[in-house]
Design a protein around this nucleic acid. Sequence first.
DNA 1: AATGAATGAGCGTTCATTCAT
DNA 2: TATGAATGAACGCTCATTCAT
Lengths: 222, 222, 222, 222
Amino acid sequence: MKFSVDRFVPREGGYARGADGHELILKTALSVMIDHGYKAMTLRRIAAECGLKAGHISYYFKSKDDLVRALLKMITGSYNEAIEAMAEKAGDDPEKKLKNLIRFMLEDGRTKQAAYLFPELWALANHDPFVQTCVEEMYVAEQGHFEEIIAELNPALGDEDRKNAAVLILSSLEGVAIFAGYGKTWEERMDALEEMACDCFVAFVKAMKPGDAVATDGLSIA
Amino acid sequence: MKFSVDRFVPREGGYARGADGHELILKTALSVMIDHGYKAMTLRRIAAECGLKAGHISYYFKSKDDLVRALLKMITGSYNEAIEAMAEKAGDDPEKKLKNLIRFMLEDGRTKQAAYLFPELWALANHDPFVQTCVEEMYVAEQGHFEEIIAELNPALGDEDRKNAAVLILSSLEGVAIFAGYGKTWEERMDALEEMACDCFVAFVKAMKPGDAVATDGLSIA
Amino acid sequence: MKFSVDRFVPREGGYARGADGHELILKTALSVMIDHGYKAMTLRRIAAECGLKAGHISYYFKSKDDLVRALLKMITGSYNEAIEAMAEKAGDDPEKKLKNLIRFMLEDGRTKQAAYLFPELWALANHDPFVQTCVEEMYVAEQGHFEEIIAELNPALGDEDRKNAAVLILSSLEGVAIFAGYGKTWEERMDALEEMACDCFVAFVKAMKPGDAVATDGLSIA
Amino acid sequence: MKFSVDRFVPREGGYARGADGHELILKTALSVMIDHGYKAMTLRRIAAECGLKAGHISYYFKSKDDLVRALLKMITGSYNEAIEAMAEKAGDDPEKKLKNLIRFMLEDGRTKQAAYLFPELWALANHDPFVQTCVEEMYVAEQGHFEEIIAELNPALGDEDRKNAAVLILSSLEGVAIFAGYGKTWEERMDALEEMACDCFVAFVKAMKPGDAVATDGLSIA
DNA sequence: AATGAATGAGCGTTCATTCAT
DNA sequence: TATGAATGAACGCTCATTCAT
């Protein structure tokens, strides 16, 4: 399973004669943002790539800000769905589930979409509270998924330890995904990095000791 | 030691009137980029925050592109210097050195500068080969530093294993830094995350087995 | 018949609001160029004289260069049409036809339009290949018209003699037109100059001898 | 003898260490105007080609307008001198003198300087009374020279006839010079045009009849 | 639902000019 | 003399937006 532009579009289905206006525009906006960056995502360009005229976008979206917000909702909503879908269809073995999730996230980083989109989102989020909230919600959901698996893999852990471990793994994987993802110098190492990440984080979760969030004298592992 | 805006503007000449124009402008441009994002970094805004007029920026930088390039060189050059400085003043214990480096990177993420600047750079790099090259060079240097420490900590590792481990740790830390860095929801967890990251990655490097990049039957730790 | 600004703007569409934008803008641009020179023909000035705002010009012409090119095409196209129209409605007597053409060109020089426009075009042409080509094409057509009349007036002439005579007369008339045309010190002499030019060039063509481009022992006239 | 950039420069001679500031700047301004047109003749460009800085031009010329005026004075002054020099060293035969003058003017048109400079001057003159006066004065002097020769060649002519003939020939030659001069499509015809122009205008002057400025029933020639 | 016309603000840039040094 | 710093206006152009049709 991968995140794709098409996944962002379906909404309620039923396409009258091609795509619904909103969807077509959002889909096009997304592709412009991915291919040329947010700064190149002008209404004119979106319109041109839709086969529409610039002024017509305003019919669907009152302002560019509205469009951006709808776009963000679409993107993060789609990721939320994908995460939930993953959680449902996961098997029984918690170690396997964690590895699957790690591999899923890093595979996503190999797509142009993820590797080019997320830096834009992060940059936007730093200066736009709405974007920040959207992105945060998305990651909170992902974090919850990690927490569930970690709880299965090491049931002895306390709440805080579990949360922190989830955040560490989640954020690390995001880093690896955009650092060694699509188009990057380190892209060819991704296969090895996936295996390493699986081993590293599975071992870490297994080795964690409950009671103290951080073993002050070093972990007992090794 | 931290990276700060001031570190970027070391030279202080004996010029006629006030500080050297290039440095003042670059310093201001950087602060605008950090505080308001690249898309808000217009020549007029930089000029206004410098107390200059828009046209005067062109006196120092032939074009905005020139300014951006000089800015990039300044930023990455400064980070390169900081990394080298760290390498030189490190002690003897490789484990301590690795932990220091990990903490250093995550502490940097707690500064607004790093947390807000790097997403902008990554976004820019995806659509501007020059930025990509600058950022890459910076990370290659950091990667080299990690490799040296890893080689000391686990001398049995082969070249590829060592390189991959360095990339995994470096990119993970970048992810954690911006994910749980300045202004983010997870910022309050950063102390715990630092300790966890130290334990996780030190254990991982120690546990790595030479010969096969990944121990197929699970790591021997724990 | 005279060339006038209005002649440049023949088409009159049934558009929604007012005249067609392209034509209005080109017409205004022309009048600015005539009244104030090419260097004063800024988009803002054209817009202001149109009752538009500067940015709106870019809606009709992608760039100023595009506008200039369209303007050139309009000007030279209109002259080409006028020349053809003249050729068609000419009578039978070749001497009369030549005199008519001479008078036509010099009368044109008495209009502000011609007297002020052509020096701008020549200056532009020297540094802009596109303008040079446009202007050249226009003059080649005029030259052809002269050649036809000369052939009738002195059928014995060879190709080269005829061409050279046409170029001599055409270029001389252009010189007289701008030298003693609208607004010049010598403007009051134009009536006399027209008669003189007619006599001079008609006599010259009649007196030309075939075989050698130039009669080395002086012309046989007088 | 030709007009050349160097001819414009000598002034009072004695060059201290290279050229005097005024002269160097004017000379450079002229070459910029010829090579790139008046619209490209910016103070910055002149300064750069002089090896000076832009602000320094203002030390020599209070304003750009001052510079342009000095430049015009230099150009037309130099042409006036050349015309006088020609008049002095001319021989006895009036026909030869007229032909020499015609050839001189057309040869001048074959230089880039004349062919590129004069259209700029005419364009400027139409919108700047000072330039207009300068250029007019220059041509009045040339006209005087033509009148003298015509008086010798056809002493029976009245004042007005002589003046008009001078204007006709002078303006025609200016037309031919820039029309078939340096860099133009018709440049290769210039040898033939020189001969034709000599024959045409010499014959015309000789054939002119006194008493009526214009023979109302056609000239008696042919 | 869709377009073309129009606006106003802002962009990066260039220019002539001023002025202290 | 000569320079570097600085200004303010204008340039061509792009943008989001509005609105009548």
